[in-house]
């Protein structure tokens, strides 16, 4: 993968995930669970995880997306929550991907769970209130469900684009 190709890929993926993030902000909230979201932007993270050759590229993409999204609307608090959820989620997904035998929906499911877990962890630290952990049964469950759905869609997209093959060859 040449540096130019890598830069182009990363830019496109950042733009795509940013659009997903902003699009999701316009949709009416589909859940009655406080704080739960579909996580459309994570769709791009999962696809990037399987189409970019190195995890550090996905990390780059994620941090850029969160930084730009927070700058466009949200501010430092949103940045902190997104970063906590995003990094823990990516960490869990990279760890699982390096182990054999986990399908894309499974890995995305863990990603969804740890995204909400990470956000809750930041909330507990910022608010200095361990009582917020009582939200975990609902938020964790939602993360599992939405993560799995996002994983199913990602798997379909990756199969249609057969990205995995092409990138492995370019490597």
């Amino acid at each position: 993968m040449s540096p130019v190709y890598r830069l182009a890929c990363l830019s496109l993926l950042v733009t795509l995930s940013l659009s997903m993030f902003l699009l999701e902000g316009m949709l009416p909230v589909p859940f009655f669970v406080p704080g739960a979201k579909l996580g459309l932007a994570n769709l791009v993270t999962v696809i990037a995880l399987y189409s970019l050759p190195y995890a550090k590229d996905v990390f780059c993409m994620l941090v850029l997306r969160i930084g730009i999204a927070s700058a466009l609307g949200g501010g430092p608090t949103v940045f902190l929550y997104s970063l906590g959820g995003g990094l823990l989620s990516l960490g869990a997904m990279v760890w699982l991907k390096n182990r054999e035998g986990f399908s894309i929906p499974c890995i995305s499911m863990a990603g969804g769970f740890f995204h909400n877990f990470g956000q809750l962890l930041v909330a507990v630290l910022v608010m200095e209130s361990p009582a917020l952990w009582f939200y975990l049964p609902v938020l964790g469950g939602c993360g599992i469900a939405t993560g799995w759905l996002i994983g199913m869609v990602s798997a379909t997209v990756l199969r249609k684009l057969s990205y995995t093959k092409r990138y492995t060859r370019d490597r």
Binding site: G101, F102, A110, F113, F134, P137, G140, I144
Partner: peptide
Amino acid sequence: MSAKKGILLLAGLLLASFLPLLFRP
């Protein structure tokens, strides 16, 4: 064996989700 690992993962995550309920007053 992929499905079995997936179910184990799901069970683990669900268990972790419901852990705080043990500490509910």
